[in-house]
């Protein structure tokens, strides 16, 4: 009997030990990393007025003012719409450098030397005026940061993607040109100091393209955050306003001196190329409703 009880005790110890070992898994497995956190986003409306500036632009830096409105479905996903207007733009270093090498006025015979003048080059450039578009956003990360071990903030990181509608103000190169539709020969004295160009499509108007970016919200309290955002857009444009693909129009003039065919540089939609346009936005996000609860 003692042997049986001994065996049972041994058996019991072994089974209980095994069962306990099986139970000793990580108790925090599959648990949320953070509890009792402030739910800054869940079912809240975010309004973010912001200032923006383009960067890595070839000819003009645009300054933007506008706002973004976004509704957060939960802590991770949201959708919204942004609209920004550019009241002014500034020449880049490249523009200044190119201008410094250009003549003050167009050559008399631009067939021989079609180099644009400083003013013609500058006036030919397009200007970004407005960027609007819807987007969806995803906020995968949040956390806490300490600045100089003194100031502590909550923050989150988000990514977004959408469609951008971009309004470009066209340059005014036409006034420097002698188009093929003129009834005067390009070598006519009245056409000196003019570029023999056909501007069939100016470099302005609305463009559509994808936009995407990412941003950081640093929370000052439960309903106000500092917002820094990077925006990338990919649109078709002809920034310089000149011919880019080398295609030509030809027109033959017949007069007393005989037939003569002249070529005119053609500027049209085919001279547009897909280009990256990037911005940084700096703004303040306001959340409504103002109260943000905590998670469980």
């Amino acid at each position: 009997m003692k042997r049986i009880i001994g065996f049972l005790l041994l058996f019991n110890i072994l089974t209980v030990t095994t069962a306990n070992a099986a139970d000793r898994t990580d108790p925090l497995k599959d648990e949320p990393a953070v509890r009792k956190r402030i739910l800054y986003l869940n079912e809240r409306l975010e309004v973010t007025p912001s200032l923006g500036v383009s960067f890595l632009q070839d000819y003009k830096h645009s300054f933007l003012i506008g706002a973004k409105v976004e509704y957060h479905l939960n802590e991770y996903f949201s959708f919204g719409f942004s609209a920004h207007y550019s009241p002014f733009a500034m020449s880049t270093g490249l523009t200044d450098e190119i201008k410094s090498t250009l003549p003050d006025q167009l050559e008399a015979n631009t067939y021989i030397n079609p180099t644009p003048s400083k003013k013609a080059m500058e006036d030919a450039l397009d200007t970004l005026r407005m960027v609007i578009g819807p987007h969806i956003a995803y906020t995968p990360a949040f956390g806490k940061m300490g600045l100089f071990s003194t100031l502590f903030f909550n923050f989150d990181l988000y990514f977004y993607a959408g469609v951008a509608f971009v309004n470009l103000e066209a340059g005014s190169l036409k006034k420097y040109t002698n188009p093929s539709t003129d009834n005067t020969r390009p070598d006519d004295p009245s056409n000196q100091h003019k570029l023999h160009m056909d501007i069939e499509e100016e470099n302005g108007g609305w463009r559509i393209g994808p936009q995407a970016g990412f941003g950081l919200r640093v929370y000052l309290n439960r309903w106000i955050a500092v917002n820094v955002e990077f925006r990338w857009m990919y649109i078709k444009r002809n920034q310089a306003g000149f011919d880019a693909n080398g295609d030509r129009n030809y027109r033959t003039f017949t007069d007393l001196s005989g037939d003569a065919t002249f070529e005119y540089i053609k500027v049209d939609g085919k001279d547009q190329m897909w280009e990256n346009t990037m911005f940084f936005h700096f703004g303040a996000s306001f959340f409504f409703k103002q109260y943000a609860p905590r998670s469980e």
Binding site: K36, R37, I38, G143, K144, G146, S149, N154, N221
Partner: peptide, 26 residues
């Protein structure tokens, strides 16, 4: 977020609005 070399507890930094309570434990 206290300096690692201190063995004692500093006065909790002011994060405003109970920010320091968040991510508690992590």
């Amino acid at each position: 977020d206290a300096p690692p070399t201190t063995g004692k507890v500093d006065t909790p930094a002011k994060g405003g609005d109970g920010l320091d309570d968040d991510l508690s434990g992590l």
